[in-house]
Simulated scan of single mutants.
Amino acid sequence: MNYAGTGNEKTVAATDLNRTHVGLTVSFQPDDGTLVFGRIGAIVRKDTGVTIALEGVDGTGGLQTNYTVSPTQNVYVQPDMLTNTETTIKDLFGKVQENLRGHKGDQRPEAM
């Protein structure tokens, strides 16, 4: 298996995970035969690796509650919908401003 995320996920090196990622949905491949999808409950960084604890997993059904990956390993994070929406609105507002500036010189005096 060679998982590389999906088109709407943001690639993040495990060592770059921080408190802003807690609560977001993540996917990663901790070993050759396992693919993990879950919500980040906690992140622990150590010299030996980064441990990702999953929220809502209590160990039933043989599921692990946490995984340790290499600091350089990529994990794939779903974008935060609020931040994503805010960025989209700012981009659209910027385009509207550019359009208005571009048409400023097009004003013609009214005919009498």
Rank of each mutant, 00 (worst) to 15 (best):
K104S: 11
T20C: 07
V50Q: 10
E55P: 04
L17G: 03
K104I: 09
H21Y: 15
H21F: 15
P109M: 10
G5D: 10
Q29N: 12
A111W: 04
Y76M: 01
D58P: 03
M1V: 05
F93L: 00
V12C: 05
V57A: 02
V96W: 14
G38F: 07
G49K: 03
F37E: 07
P71S: 08
T6W: 13
R45G: 08
G41L: 00
E9V: 00
G59H: 13
G38H: 04
D58V: 04
L54R: 07
A42F: 00
I89P: 07
A42P: 03
R45W: 06
S27E: 10
Q78T: 14
D16N: 11
T72E: 15
L24F: 07
P109Y: 10
T25L: 11
L100V: 11
V12P: 14
G33D: 14
V77N: 02
V26F: 03
D16E: 12
G5A: 03
T34K: 08
V26M: 10
T88G: 11
D16Y: 02
T85S: 12
Q64G: 07
P71C: 03
D58I: 05
Q107L: 10
G94N: 13
D80Y: 09
V12D: 09
L92D: 06
M81T: 13
T25A: 11
T72M: 12
A4T: 09
V77S: 07
A53V: 09
V57L: 06
T51L: 08
L54Y: 02
T65Q: 14
T15A: 15
G23D: 11
T25N: 07
G105Q: 10
V36G: 01
F93N: 06
A53M: 08
T83S: 14
D106G: 12
T6F: 13
M1C: 12
D91S: 14
R19K: 13
P109E: 15
G49T: 07
Q97C: 00
V44M: 14
I40E: 03
M112Y: 02
A42M: 04
N66F: 15
S27K: 06
K95E: 09
D47L: 14
T85C: 01
T60A: 03
Q29G: 00
D91I: 09
A13G: 07
T83Y: 10
D106C: 01
G7C: 01
Q73G: 05
L24C: 12
R101N: 11
Q73M: 14
R101E: 01
L82K: 13
D31W: 11
A42V: 00
N8R: 07
N2W: 01
H103W: 04
V69I: 11
S27R: 06
G33P: 03
G5T: 04
I52P: 05
A13V: 14
T48N: 07
F28E: 00
G33Y: 10
M1F: 08
M112N: 11
T6I: 06
A4W: 13
T72D: 12
V12L: 09
N99P: 00
E98P: 00
K46T: 15
P30R: 08
V57D: 02
A111M: 09
V36K: 02
H103K: 13
N8Y: 00
Q29C: 02
H21M: 06
F28D: 06
G41H: 00
G105L: 01
T11D: 01
Y76R: 02
